[in-house]
């Protein structure tokens, strides 16, 4: 048995496999299928200050090896999460990462204040439209990545801050560096890529929201490249995700520099995906005589 424990900015994970935000709710449903206590952690559904109903349906569509979603941040609000869901997650002894979103800088500060000291880590979803900037997402320009990180960080006295980068940007390295400069303790990536699927008979997009976020196996090469670029741009730990389906996929991210990984869409295809990835990681490390998963991190050897 290799050591799978990793430490991300002071938070110990029993293994580097974390459930990705929005695909795992608050853990209760998957726990009916297997004990989610085996996971390294869970990133919750994106939380906002007030409850949100989200987008009209259909909210999901499929492409070859990918899916698109536009759930639109439906969630019960941060207060309901603290009251109804946090205790259950804590009882599982896994790292609880609260994924949070807002429409304004004040929203981000407010929600961080409410969660400070209560969860193990905050993950800032900055792919949301900033109402003050004509709806352009906070996560697009390095300046606004810096700003939203700084405002959130200053609202947090105890809980470490991880900033989740959007891939729909000019330079992932510049945005990673901006998050670090703003005070992020870690970064995670990638969030979904923006896409569209058209029903040619009705000549309409399949998703009610017209566009949706692309995720799943097919995005993995893009995600690995971006994680590698981000790792080269910062000193803080990076959680990698995007299309991870197997232990081998997860190890690609770790070799490219990620300290841990998150798994999203694969939970839909295979409800047991994460426990299988953890077991597979162990088996791979054993068969390669590697005693500690941390030894693999960032060991990428570039060609030429």
């Amino acid at each position: 048995m290799a050591n799978l424990k990793v430490n991300i900015c002071g938070v110990e994970l029993k293994n580097p496999v974390v459930a990705a935000s929005g695909t795992f709710g608050f853990g209760k449903e998957f726990d009916e299928i297997y004990d989610i206590g085996v996971l390294g952690g869970i990133s919750t559904k994106g939380l906002t200050l007030e409850p949100r109903l989200g987008n009209p349906t259909p909210r999901i569509a499929e492409g070859h090896g990918v899916i698109l979603n536009a759930v639109g941040l439906q969630n019960p609000g941060v207060d309901a999460f603290l009251k109804d869901d946090l205790d259950f997650l804590k009882s599982k002894h896994i790292a609880v990462i609260a994924n949070v979103a807002g429409k304004t800088l004040d929203d981000y500060a407010g929600i961080c204040e409410k969660l400070d000291g209560k969860v193990d880590m905050i993950e800032l979803n900055i792919s949301c439209p900033n109402v003050k900037c004509g709806g352009m997402a906070f996560g697009i320009k390095p300046e606004s990545v810096y700003e939203v990180t700084k405002v959130s960080k200053s609202a947090l006295k105890k809980t470490p801050l991880m900033v989740k980068l959007s891939p729909n940007v000019e330079s992932i390295a510049a945005n990673a560096a901006a998050a670090q400069k703003g005070g992020a303790d870690a970064i995670s990536l990638i969030n979904t890529l923006t896409g569209m699927v058209v029903d040619i008979e009705r000549r309409r997009p399949l998703i009610a929201n017209n566009t949706g976020g692309v995720s799943g196996a097919g995005v993995k090469p893009i995600a690995v490249r971006m994680v590698w670029e981000a790792c080269n741009a910062v000193d803080i730990p990076v959680m990698g995700m995007g299309g991870i389906t197997s232990a081998e996929d997860a190890l690609e991210f770790i070799i490219a520099g990620a300290a841990a990984v998150q798994v999203g869409t694969a939970n839909f295809t295979d409800t047991l995906a994460m426990p299988k990835i953890i077991d597979g990681m162990n088996a791979w490390l054993d068969s390669h005589g590697i005693a500690d998963v941390n030894q693999l991190r960032g060991t990428l050897r570039l060609n030429g």
């Binding site: 709710g25 259909p58 909210r59 979603n69 759930v71």
Partner: peptide, 14 residues
């Protein structure tokens, strides 16, 4: 309704 997880976790099928 179109579904993601099918078990109640993803809020896709509301």
């Amino acid at each position: 309704e179109r579904m993601g997880c099918g078990i109640g976790a993803c809020l896709v099928c509301v």
